[in-house]
Design a protein around this nucleic acid. Structure first.
Lengths: 343, 343
DNA sequence: AAATTAGTTGCAATCGATTGCGTTTTATTA
DNA sequence: TAATAAAACGCAATCGATTGCAACTAATTT
């Protein structure tokens, strides 16, 4: 069979140039100890022969795979896929590649994936927790073996971890306050699982805003959803609207369920935002499509991915002392649209 | 430093059990040539010590990375991210991992990524072409080196390649025919770059339906868009509606631009679907959100990912003769919603 | 009991790149 | 010119798992 590019190794180059493989390796890596002429000759031949270094061999020897593992709940969600897009961009820029796994929001899959990623010798992991994750000891598989982890978005409730996230408390506070400013007098909250810090924080941010403005905090209109799916959004909306004292505002912890709230309310002939103002979270593309357009909290997904990679690089390649940094908090912004704008 | 799990190798196990590393390796791989007692002892100790095989070493030796490379335009698009989700699921099932790269629809990035993926020794590549790709010779880097490629969705105009796709001609034909059945008398088409087979096929499918029903094929309302973005959707809609003979139907090659068409038309007070019927393509989630809801062509993204992995496995692991199969065509279906339903 | 067979296990090379250390060659200084 | 320093390069081990072949032990046959 014809000899193909992938068969070209440093040994082949070495032989053809009558130098040692060491020299070839050093020349290609711009090692200072190699003469200019040799260096050029090696590089020239490498190009000519279509030589491509074997990353597997290199990784094995150096014990660095230059691979970043990603673990998320589902790839096909607007926020997540944008996050991943940001990670891939930044990683490629830095010469890293990216292995993706999804947990489907299941803890056991999360654990399994962790094993696989570990066996793949990833250099670092960027992870957003599954909905079911409440304990974090399974991550020790990586940390015990000195593989850094950067948590993004759905982060654990732990100190001294590397993380990139938003201030969910503040974002929720502002979102709720916006509803209050628009004159809402009774504001419901559709939150996610309180096991997840992000949802807990949104909940407390919401409560804090109510308290600040002397609103009653009524647990009967504070819902804890399982997954904030479209279906659940319908169900929850129906539920709160059927209460004796239905809310005139909803702060929903994601856009998917918020859109369902809009659609349900509309189907019941309820005027939005005047009778019911609705605020989402994430600023997914659908916010601008649904009618009325959905107010939401802008969540810098792409940037979050980039920052996560930055953290990874700092830990992996930066000076020792830079590693103490244990968190980046990104800005959010309430985007006001028709679903809450009573102006 | 304390010895951590990742430091455990077959040599450590071998030493502790007073057997050779070969025996350990064979035992762990269930090689028939190893006695039952030894096999069990090895496995037991491996578990006890938290042994994890080093995939890099294994891959280097066997020349199989068990990694599937993915190359797509953008990860953060509904269709693509769902496709990837399907690939990841099926790949994990089969014991493969997945490396992701995005081309941002640029040919030069596509070429670069190909190099990187090649150097990573991927076992196979699943790719959807960038918008700019019209020649395919850069893929020879992989094929020359016997790395199989399965093309999905945006496939090259070539014979004898492995591919998973839909019948774009038929889908477009049916979509257009549906518009005709709804009484549209003048149907515009917003297509993508004709360099891409999928868009060319949708175009010819559209034309063919027109022809079958004795409609005039008017090039002035057959648009070739650059990227079918939301902005472009607006622009194109504005353009055709300002013509002397504006269309009363639009068949758009994606949903993003179709939604823009809806929004633009509505803003001009044009009744949908009665004055203007609009048909999209892909059946993205926004189809159900926009008002009126958007008719579209359902595109089995998840399944496409799974089938692509199936093809990969067939090529990589199946018997020689099964490899001749050079294409899977998946079913599409026109989903009728309010944007075209004049019933 | 000797001979044959089957069943287990070890030896050592291999995958391709990297790297500490030693050696050779060239340049510099006395 | 001899001695010293510097520059360039090679040797050989290494990363961890796999595998063809040989060797050894135990079981079976005659």
């Amino acid at each position: 069979m014809k000899k193909t590019n992938s068969d070209v190794t440093i040994y082949d180059l070495a032989e053809e140039l009558n130098v040692s493989p060491s020299t070839v390796s050093r020349a290609l890596n711009n090692n200072k100890g190699i003469g200019k002429k040799t260096k050029n000759a090696v590089k020239k031949l490498a190009k000519k022969r279509g030589y491509r270094p074997n990353k597997l061999a290199s990784s094995l020897r150096t014990n660095k795979s230059n691979t970043i593992g990603i673990m998320v709940s589902w790839i096909n969600r607007p926020f997540i896929s944008t996050l991943i897009s940001g990670i891939e961009n930044a990683a490629k820029e830095a010469g890293y590649q990216v292995i993706i796994t999804q947990t489907q929001d299941k803890l056991d899959i999360e654990i399994e994936n962790l094993q696989t990623l570990f066996e793949s010798r990833i250099s670092a992991l960027i992870v957003s927790l599954s909905m079911e994750t409440k304990k974090y000891n399974h991550f020790s598989l990586l940390t015990d073996n000195h593989i850094p982890i950067v948590y993004v978005d759905r982060i654990p409730a732990l100190k001294d971890i590397h993380k990139v996230h938003i201030d969910n408390f503040k974002a929720a506070f502002e979102a709720t306050e916006h509803l209050i400013e628009q004159g809402c007098e009774r504001i419901a909250h559709f939150g996610g699982s309180r096991l997840q810090l992000i949802y807990e924080d949104r909940r407390t941010g919401y409560i804090s805003a109510l308290t600040k403005h002397n609103y009653e905090v009524d647990e009967s209109i504070i819902m804890e959803a399982n997954n904030l799916s479209a279906e659940e959004g319908f169900r929850l909306t129906e539920f709160v609207l059927n209460l004796d004292h239905p809310p005139d505002g909803i702060f929903c912890a994601n856009d998917t369920a918020a859109v369902s709230a809009i659609r349900f309310a509309k189907s019941k002939g309820i005027a939005i935002p005047d009778e019911l103002a609705i605020m989402g979270f994430n600023n997914d593309p659908i916010c601008e499509i649904v009618e009325p357009q959905l107010s939401s909290v802008r969540h810098p997904a792409l940037q979050m991915g980039e920052k996560a990679v930055e953290q990874v690089l700092r830990i992996l390649e930066g000076p020792e002392e830079s590693v103490v940094s244990n968190g980046v908090t990104l800005d959010t912004r309430v985007i006001v649209r028709s679903s809450t704008d009573r102006g």
